[in-house]
């Protein structure tokens, strides 16, 4: 089976390698060449020359930085569209399922070998890219970026996207039986599920913490701010617009810390956030979600193929 899988998918393997290896090289080049400017920016910040040093970094490396990010964002979707969707659909279209299922091995063994090997290869490449994404993130001036902003191109979550994408493509191909529609479903489905998790699920993996803006958010530079600030009175009830305006009008005329002035006038401003030390926990939760979805999809594939006539 291993030979057959290699023979059938060596072209995809070659193309994947030709996409992944240059990306890794690009990240390495970025990391090495950007270091002097990153170092300058990091020593200048915070300070008077901070913005010019940061700007110097962006002027020189802004494009490369974005190119790498775009490639990393796009690659997992390709796994589903170009490897996953045709995997079974093309066999059905050309009738070769009948050929291979009538050889001396059962179709379950054939299927499990295919799913296992291609998943393993895809996840392996995606882990490499996820590590590269983290390196890409680390290779930037500290003040320029937040790891929450670059959450989607690094770590275990990134590897899990590729696995999910592949599984979705395979399941779509098995269920639809035609390559091109399965490719479309794989792409649309991948983007849809990813967006849904980003906007609906991820902010609530754990209940957000509340930051009282009148106090200092010590050590939480790396927090992920969720939504707008909300206004409350000292008892914790939502503040009416009228009272809020009154407090704002008063405080805008005085010198001194804005937050504590508002509090003196009966207004508390709260900002929901996820603290920076939850980053890897969130990555793990999201990876578990996508791996779980992927496993369900592969299970459905096994079921569909088992029932197929």
């Amino acid at each position: 089976m291993t030979w057959l899988i290699w023979r059938q998918h060596r072209l995809e393997g070659l193309v994947a390698t030709l996409l992944v290896v240059p990306t890794l090289v690009l990240v390495a080049v970025f990391f090495i060449t950007a270091q002097p400017l990153v170092h300058l920016a990091n020593t200048a910040c915070p300070g008077d020359s901070c913005s010019s040093a940061s700007q110097a970094f962006l002027d020189r490396f802004g494009t490369l930085r974005l190119v790498i990010k775009a490639i990393l964002i796009g690659l997992p979707a390709l796994a589903g569209v170009f490897i996953g969707a045709p995997l079974l659909a093309r066999e059905f279209e050309q009738g070769t399922d009948q050929l291979v299922w009538s050889q001396g091995i059962t179709r379950q063994r054939w299927l499990l070998a295919k799913l296992g090997l291609l998943s393993a290869a895809t996840v392996l490449l995606a882990i490499l890219l996820g590590v590269a994404g983290r390196i890409w993130f680390e290779a930037q001036p500290v003040l320029n970026s937040s790891q929450w902003q670059e959450y989607d191109i690094q770590g275990p979550a990134y590897a899990s996207y590729a696995f999910f994408s592949l599984a979705l493509g395979i399941a779509a191909g098995a269920a639809i039986g035609r390559t091109v529609p399965a490719m479309a479903v794989a792409l649309v489905g991948y983007v849809g599920v990813r967006l849904a998790i980003v906007f609906l699920a991820r902010p609530n993996f754990l209940p957000p913490l509340q930051w009282d803006v009148s106090t200092n958010l010590a050590g939480q530079l790396d927090a992920w701010m969720l939504g707008d600030q909300k206004h409350f009175d000292l008892q914790g009830h939502p503040l009416s617009d009228l009272s809020w305006q009154a407090a704002v009008n008063t405080c805008s005329q005085i010198q001194g810390p804005w937050g504590s002035c508002l509090r003196d006038h009966g207004a508390v401003v709260l900002q929901a956030y996820q603290p920076g030390d939850r980053f890897w926990l969130f990555q793990s939760i999201e990876a578990a979600v996508f791996v779980g979805l992927g496993i369900i999809l592969l299970g459905l594939t096994v079921w569909v193929i088992g029932r197929r006539s």
Binding site: Q8, Q94, G95, T96, Q98, L99, S102, Q103, G104, I105, T106
Partner: peptide, 16 residues
């Protein structure tokens, strides 16, 4: 059974 039965499916599919 699969080991003992040879099968040429309709349209004689092969990996082209």
């Amino acid at each position: 059974v699969l080991a003992r039965v040879g099968y040429v499916p309709q349209d004689r599919p092969l990996y082209r």
